[in-house]
């Protein structure tokens, strides 16, 4: 289903950038403040869904470059590997491991929970888009045929 509305399509171009930026921001601030990979992923999926509605599934797939399925696999692998890091440092699975580095004098903490969150982000976008694409590509023609269906 494509709406083919000029207003929507023009607005989408601006909105999609903002939404994607918002989603990444939400994901990164998630460790200490409200936010996180899941919420960020949902906002990111919203951006892509908006694009799908205004331009259609085919264009959305082209714009996304990565197959949603590949994104799920990628996200799962990333989350899994972030849990595996602690194996080599002598802690149980998924234990948070942190490195502190200074970039231009600012303390930046990078840790395995962050990679876990990025993994979640990709899984959420991938799953949501896979569902949306699959449902959009169906041609639904439901006609109640018996009394109970109505």
């Amino acid at each position: 289903m494509i709406l083919n509305s000029i207003i929507l399509q023009t607005a989408t171009r601006i909105l999609i950038a903002l939404l994607l930026l918002l989603s990444i921001w939400l994901m990164i601030r998630g460790h200490n403040l409200p936010g996180g990979g899941f919420i960020g992923g949902l906002v990111g999926a919203c951006a892509c869904a908006l694009y799908t509605i205004s331009y259609g599934v085919k264009k959305a797939r082209e714009a996304l470059r990565l197959e949603p399925r590949i994104m799920i696999g990628l996200g799962l692998t990333l989350a899994f590997l972030s849990g595996l890091i602690s194996l080599f440092l002598g802690d149980p699975f998924l234990t948070g491991q942190w490195i502190k580095i200074y970039i231009f004098g600012t303390l930046v903490k990078i840790g395995s929970p962050m990679f876990f969150d990025i993994g979640v982000y990709f899984v959420v976008i991938g799953v949501t888009l896979a569902m949306i694409f699959a449902l959009e590509e169906l041609e639904f023609d439901y006609q109640p045929s018996s009394e109970a269906d109505k």
Binding site: M131, L138, F140, Y142, S145, A148, D149
Partner: peptide, 28 residues
């Protein structure tokens, strides 16, 4: 919520497939 979301999505697609085969969604 996430699990419920996944279940609902799956069941809707399953019911859709069932409808295309059976031409009905009556439990009978």
């Amino acid at each position: 919520i996430v699990i419920g979301f996944g279940f609902v999505a799956f069941s809707l697609v399953l019911l859709y497939r069932t409808y295309t085969v059976e031409k009905s969604l009556d439990t009978d």
